[in-house]
C-alpha cells in the first residue's frame, strides 16, 4: 500500500493529539493545589483552606506533636479525630514560609487518622484542621524548635 505524505502527516497528527489528550487527563487527575502552597501570610492560607466555612475549635481532634522539637527539619505529627464524615485533614504551621504543609483528602474508607513528618522553621503554632461538609474543626499546639529547621 502506498502511503503518501499527506496521509502520513494526518495520521501522525491524529495520534499525537490523542497522546496529548491522554496525558492531560492523567495530569488533571493529580492536579496540585498550587495556590494553596504559595508562600504567603498565614491568614491568607487559612482563608483559602476554609473556603468560607466557619472554624470551630474543638477537643475532638488529637494533635500529637512534641512540644519541644530538637530538630525542626523532622517533627513527627499524628492527627486523630473522633469526628464523623470528614473530608480532609490539613496541617498548617503558622511561622513557616509556606504555611500549609499538607492537605489530605481522605475518603470514607479511611479512619480519620494521619501521620507524617514536618519541617518547622521557627517556634510556632501548629494547626490541625479537619474539614467536614459544613464546618472546619481546628486544634492548635505550640511547638518550640531549639535549632533551626531550615536544613533539608
Amino acid at each position: 500500500m502506498k502511503v503518501n505524505r499527506r496521509k502520513f502527516l494526518k495520521t501522525t497528527i491524529a495520534f499525537s493529539a490523542a497522546g496529548i489528550a491522554l496525558l492531560e487527563s492523567t495530569l488533571a487527575k493529580a492536579e496540585w493545589l498550587a495556590a494553596y502552597f504559595a508562600p504567603g501570610p498565614f491568614d491568607a492560607t487559612m482563608k483559602q483552606l476554609l473556603k468560607g466555612k466557619p472554624i470551630v475549635e474543638t477537643d475532638k481532634i488529637d494533635l500529637n506533636i512534641p512540644e519541644i522539637a530538637e530538630n525542626g527539619a523532622l517533627v513527627p505529627v499524628t492527627v486523630t479525630s473522633s469526628i464523623k464524615d470528614i473530608q480532609s485533614i490539613a496541617i498548617v504551621v503558622e511561622q513557616n514560609p509556606v504555611p500549609l504543609v499538607i492537605q489530605a483528602q481522605l475518603m470514607p474508607e479511611l479512619e480519620p487518622f494521619m501521620s507524617a513528618r514536618l519541617k518547622i522553621a521557627n517556634t510556632s503554632f501548629v494547626f490541625a484542621l479537619v474539614e467536614t461538609e459544613k464546618v472546619c474543626y481546628s486544634v492548635k499546639k505550640k511547638v518550640k524548635v531549639t535549632i533551626g529547621g531550615c536544613g533539608g
Partner: peptide, 24 residues
C-alpha cells in the same frame, strides 16, 4: 483500584517523607 486518599503537599514535609493512614 479505588482512590482512598489524595494528599497535596508542599515542601514543608521532611526529607524522605513518612505517612501513615488507617484503613477501615
Amino acid at each position: 483500584g479505588k482512590t482512598i486518599a489524595t494528599c497535596n503537599m508542599g515542601a514543608g514535609i521532611s526529607k524522605d517523607p513518612y505517612f501513615a493512614f488507617l484503613l477501615k
